[in-house]
Design a binder for these strands. Structure first.
Lengths: 139, 139
DNA sequence: GCCACATATTCGCAAATGCGAATATGTAAA
DNA sequence: TTTACATATTCGCATTTGCGAATATGTGGC
């Protein structure tokens, strides 16, 4: 029904006009992220997260990739060059927001914690955080 | 109830998530513009235009200035420097949209027309267009 | 004061949205 | 195929939004 190319500005801004969705995008800043980490970091029910991710997908600002049972979401740049530039600047702007900063820290903490919350024992971690996690101890 | 400084991103994006409001902002690109021209160019009922302008005002993206019976609206940059940068880029991006281009042309035509539509005989024109209008004939 | 005019706000209602609860789908493993 | 688990979608329902119609407000001129 809708083609890849029907990216429009109103839909784009509507996707960004909700705090939950901004928080989700913020967590994908550096990497694709598995849905289970979104629910853990935002402390929101899974259907809520899923619905907001669907919203972002339909607006064309994220892609989903399946890996076994897990779904990874990543930011995708809009086809139009100026729109892509705008989107990058928006992300840079938002990343300074205090709550969003805390969210990213929380994601890092959750991923690197030696004792993961029960549900996340085998969940695939965001790549950038895995590399931190696997860094040899400074001893 | 709400202070000048409570500019937030969600509200900002929500303000931009509607075609009518994007068209309004686009018409203010170069100058402040009188409400009567908005209704003329967009061909929408006055209360609709007024409501959307109020929306933009509450989001902190435009200011209103009264001049006698007329109200002039102009774009105002957000207090945060990065937000302001983002807003400028957004406007540059949008100004390439075909419909928005046509709207600006239509505004120029309406303002410069020797026979103004009945209601706009005495309406104050946007400054940049007035200067075009008053340019001496090339004869 | 009254009137005319530009713009803003209110009101009522139809349509859209958001959310929790329940259910469905897709995948892996036994 | 059955089970378990991660994620997506559907369903009801309460809340919000958008719009036209009507009305209110602010201003200038008489």
């Amino acid at each position: 029904m809708s083609k890849k190319t029907d990216f429009n500005a109103e839909k784009f801004f509507l996707a960004l006009s909700d705090r939950t969705r901004l928080r989700l995008l913020n967590l994908m800043q550096d990497d694709e992220v598995c849905v289970c980490f979104f629910t853990e970091v935002l402390q929101s029910p899974q259907p809520t997260i899923s619905r907001h991710l669907a919203y972002l997908r339909q607006a064309g600002v994220v892609n989903a990739r399946r890996e076994g049972k897990w779904m990874h979401y990543r930011i995708v740049d809009p086809p139009d060059a100026r729109a892509a530039q705008v989107f990058r600047e928006i992300r840079a702007w938002l990343s300074e927001d205090p709550e969003l900063r805390r969210d990213r820290e929380r994601l890092a903490r959750v991923c690197c914690a030696p004792k993961l919350p029960l549900a996340l024992r085998d969940a695939p971690r965001p790549l950038s955080l895995v590399s931190i996690e696997k860094r040899p101890a400074t001893s």
